[in-house]
Amino acid sequence: MNQWCVKQSIMSEPNPNTREIDGLLQAWSDGDQQVEAQLIELMYPHIHRIAHFQIKSSSASALQTTELVNEAFIRISDQKSVDWQNKDHFLAIAAKVIRRVIVDHYRSELSQKRGGLEQHVTLEKVSDLIENAQANELNWLELDAMLLELSEIDAEAARVVEYKVFGGMTIPEMAHVMQVSPSTVSRNWQFARSWLLMQFK
């Protein structure tokens, strides 16, 4: 049952980026917004690779964001050498990276189709999308665009959606990263959720 132990004992060589990522996460969680871009850049190739596997291996163009986050954490983190104080912050950055990877992927897929049939998002689908990020056949690009719009109205609410949908983060985790109370996160979520659903009426 001790899966983590097994994994730790064989992962003796730290991922070369691990310490760097951990250090930057620390800076980021201390409020240094400058390092965010750097973090995203460091993590992008890892997550891109994992996502690539996922997309290749699944029949539909399904992406499982939670799986992505878990895999990314397992692969990027080195449990032995780094004390991951910053797991929540890791998840938050990972959410941003995953969003970017997904959007890049579907954008290139779309451009390959050369403007073929664009799938239309129904209310049902959006509801599905928000409640369950694992649903297949989401129009991720549309979600991305909607989030951009939302972030102009309410950046915090948009961040909550990003964290939840792309990073699978829980309310306490989001509260920790955003340094607000869980109930604030919850309110942001309620607002964002209804706002997003409303766009499709």
Binding site: I10, Q54, E67, E71, I74
Partner: peptide, 8 residues
């Protein structure tokens, strides 16, 4: 699909 904490 996918794995999380498998035992290699």
């Amino acid at each position: 699909v996918g794995t999380t904490a498998l035992t290699p």
